[in-house]
Write a protein that binds this DNA or RNA. Structure first.
Lengths: 127, 127
DNA sequence: TTCCAAAATAGTAATTATTACTATTTTACG
DNA sequence: CGTAAAATAGTAATAATTACTATTTTGGAA
């Protein structure tokens, strides 16, 4: 593994962000600092960080993947108005796996769970 | 709204299937009976049935959508080995919405939940 | 029955997110 | 320094779905 400025900056960007950015957001913002940055480089490095368990990939049906510094077990809520992504950690959600396992006699490997919501701010009259 | 043989057969196919087929599966199978059937027609009609609440669309991250005759509130488990899709209906899952609503002070509109599993048959030595 | 406008279809093109590919550049070790 | 491995930039490919358009079908009315 060899150093690269691009990788370094992508990791820095993603670990200091709290907005669960998409690859495109990372690309657009870093492009200003590294004008010849390639979107492929962003994807490749984000993939790599996911494999190294430095970040998580949030897969959203029919939408862009988002990336998350929080590697602890959790799921997400997406506001359908402003698009904000919120981390959700809840014992009841983790327990589902065991519940399904027992009731349906199958091994639960993982799950994909996204809540579509209207967040507190948007509900109060919107941004 | 005008009758069409294609729509009629697509609805018949999907309502009598129990495998949660993709649009492509519907297309491939019906193509044998209607040789000039178009994939667009399948998509258009499935969309329409979803809007009319005759069937449900199952969105699976990074995979083809599947369609389900069961329009009751439920989620799905996908076997990561054989691909079989199983309906899952569980009070604890429905309750999550209220739980999230209270804890995170947001309105839950809907959720997307898919369990990735190894089903009973595949676990016993596989198909 | 025949005419005709609305609706539906077939077949192709476009879209969108992501991955793959290739020539060039960068890195770091001997 | 020289060089091989690794990384990048930029473009092309992929895959599922949607959009578009010319043609066909449907069903009510003359």
């Amino acid at each position: 593994m060899k150093y690269s400025k691009q990788r370094d900056m992508i990791l820095q960007y993603i670990t200091s962000s709290c907005t669960h950015p998409t690859a495109e957001m990372v690309y657009k913002d870093l492009k200003e600092e590294i004008p010849n940055l390639s979107l492929g480089t962003v994807y490749r490095n984000l993939d790599r960080f996911v494999k190294e368990n430095l970040i998580l990939r949030i897969k959203i049906p029919n939408d862009k993947d988002r990336f998350d510094v929080n590697t602890k077990k959790h799921v997400h809520a997406i506001c359908t108005k402003c698009g904000k992504v919120t981390d959700i950690s809840l014992k009841q959600i983790d327990d589902l796996d065991y519940c399904i396992q027992d009731l349906f006699k199958c091994k639960v490997i993982s799950k994909s769970l996204v809540f579509y919501t209207i967040c507190n701010e948007c509900d109060k009259g919107g941004i």
